[in-house]
Write a protein that binds this DNA or RNA. Structure first.
Lengths: 254, 254
DNA sequence: CAGTGGTCTAGACCACGCG
DNA sequence: GCGTGGTCTAGACCACTGT
């Protein structure tokens, strides 16, 4: 029963109580919560009030609701670690068809990807990152990556058109080692990488593409690959489901 | 006006329409949306339906509502970049009082922090990361970091008690260069760092502490500092507001 | 079929900001 | 005082899942 005189809104009290019971393990992961109509009786509030409480928990990622079935405590997602430094090593590049395929195969999943290649003119952000002039032509590889038919990652890769003309980088299929291997074939030896990491809530498009549950943010990742002389060769904007990935970096102390 | 026969819920149509107008710049950043009662007339739906649409946009981080004032388009937050490799260099360590203070000062902000030191016994996660036995004593430094009195970061640092006994690491104030400098003073030369990055929605506690707007996730960051011989010296669990930080990493291609 | 969550209404009253 | 968002009710009907 909620305390009417406390000044705390009823739906917050209900949400807080349920949250506490989930944290205490009273409702275990995967377990079903009492139905909304039961909660109405338990707490002595109306159904919209109960629903507002449940919505709160959903947007925190604590529960999911399934139409016609019930509301369930979300089991902790299995995160997969993604170690940037080793997965992009030259050795890894030579052994397989790009880092993504290598990762998935190593985990016993069947990787697949839809690739679409197009060409566009650099906007200011792209021009800055690739150190080219605004309006210069860039090759864009737009990829949707799946593991066992579940979309796990979106990636948009951009390169100065000069670097890709006449290479298979302008084909959907780039062959063993992926784009980076083809760049090195063409004489552009890789020198270094940078990655910038952020997080935000997904757009509705991303929610449906990545099949995200409520309350799951996306990790945004922008990688730039530089040549041995420091020239930017490629930038790659990636979007990952935050409940499925954890990024890992390592570097020497000095 | 919503289309009643489309099968798309009314609140989604309203949310979609508003989202489109925000994306198109029809409602510019910082600008006020029409009041809920106006939207009721515009779309021909009830007020709870309008509110559900607005709630959707809030949990996407697109708008904020201010009681008694109105609903406003959220202006893009100013992110501050945080380059892991350079900010933790030995040079940076010698010049100031830890990386956080150096960052804030460089940006013209007044840094402050509340530090609380306590001792606890390692649970399985901590034991694994620090390569000690479960139950071993660890020194815990619990910090709330502020820039101009705004809380920007939470950090919980843990070290094996053996390494800190008799050092100022067990005091709230660790002096120039912070914990890492004191570890090196004690003969524990740093060898490497690892950082694991994830994202999730904040708990209610974090929301109020970090003064997070709706629809803003937090970035979780676990750093482990290793000695030159590979022994873990410290682990640091950090929580950052995702709309205020962007992490940056760089490493050589091979 | 019964039970679940999903959508929606037409109100009511409260709390806050501002002129 | 007036307009704003915040909270809450007591229903109604729909859509989906299971038996």
């Amino acid at each position: 029963m909620v305390d009417r005189r406390s000044g705390i809104p009823a739906f917050r009290q209900v949400a807080g109580d349920l949250r506490g019971k989930i944290a205490a393990g009273e409702y275990a992961p995967g377990e079903q919560l009492p139905s909304e109509r039961e909660l109405v009786d338990t707490y002595g509030v109306s159904r919209p009030t109960v629903r507002e409480a449940v919505n709160m928990l959903r947007s925190e990622g604590l529960v999911t609701s399934e139409h016609g079935r019930g509301v369930f405590v979300r089991p902790p997602a299995l995160v997969q670690e993604r170690v940037a430094t080793t997965r992009l090593s030259r050795a890894a590049r030579q052994s397989d068809r790009g880092a993504f395929r290598a990762d998935a195969t190593a985990r016993g999943l069947t990787p697949s990807a839809s690739v679409e290649v197009r060409f566009e003119h650099a906007d200011s952000r792209v021009a800055t990152r690739l150190a080219i002039a605004e309006g210069d032509e860039v090759t864009v590889r737009d990829r949707v990556m799946r593991a066992d038919d579940l979309v796990v990652q979106l990636a948009v890769s951009r390169l100065p058109r000069e670097l890709t003309r006449g290479t298979v980088i302008e084909d959907p299929e780039t062959g063993p080692g992926g784009t980076y291997a083809r760049l090195e074939d063409a004489g552009h030896r890789l020198g270094s990488f940078t990655e910038q990491v952020g997080a935000r809530m997904p757009s509705p498009d991303e929610t449906s593409l990545l099949q995200l549950a409520d309350g799951v943010p996306v990790i945004t990742l922008t990688r730039v690959a530089y040549g041995a002389d420091g020239t930017p060769l490629e930038m790659n904007d990636m979007v990952l489901a935050a409940d499925r990935y954890e990024l890992s970096y390592e570097w020497p102390a000095d």
